[in-house]
């Protein structure tokens, strides 16, 4: 069952809010303090990617993030409504131009965001679909009865 669901419009300023909420829920779910930086970074990357994709393809559509406690794991799913051409593009030299456009300001290393997520989350699944991309990631969590993580 979802603990918290959030939808936000595709504005870069909202990515920070999503990071803060995700980190707070992760802490409450019992994710170890040492992993919270990773959660914050990976969620930020997934949301930034979604915001950039929406700004390019469907700026009016919201982005959804679900945060749940899934039997001992803290699971985050970021769902967007934009075509997943950036993911395919990473492999083809032709596609780089598109990735550059998506990364916007400084496309020094296209696809860096996805690489960061893959390097950070314990368990990641990127599912490009016809209606958008879903990025699901999770970390181990050890909840205590009062919702406070053991120190």
């Amino acid at each position: 069952m979802a603990t918290v669901e959030l939808t936000f419009s595709a504005l870069p300023a909202h990515v920070r809010t999503a990071r803060l909420v995700a980190t707070a829920i992760a802490r409450r779910t019992g994710v170890a303090e040492a992993l919270l930086d990773e959660v914050r970074l990976a969620v930020g990357e997934a949301c930034s990617r979604a915001v950039e994709a929406h700004r390019l393809h469907c700026p009016g559509e919201p982005i959804r993030i679900e945060l749940k406690d899934d039997s001992g794991r803290f699971e985050v799913t970021v769902t967007d409504a934009a075509p997943s051409d950036d993911l395919k593009a990473v492999d083809s030299s032709d596609g780089y131009r598109l990735v550059d456009a998506m990364l916007g300001i400084v496309p020094e290393m296209p696809g860096l965001g996805i690489a960061v997520i893959a390097g950070l989350a314990d368990d990641v699944e990127v599912s490009p679909g016809p209606t958008g991309v879903k990025i699901r990631m999770s970390w181990p969590a050890a909840p205590t009865p009062n919702g406070l993580a053991a120190v």
Partner: peptide, 16 residues
């Protein structure tokens, strides 16, 4: 306090 891949790209651009 926080820097993501967008920030890293800015640093890379400056380095270049």
């Amino acid at each position: 306090e926080f820097c993501d891949s967008t920030g890293m790209n800015v640093l890379l651009s400056a380095l270049k």
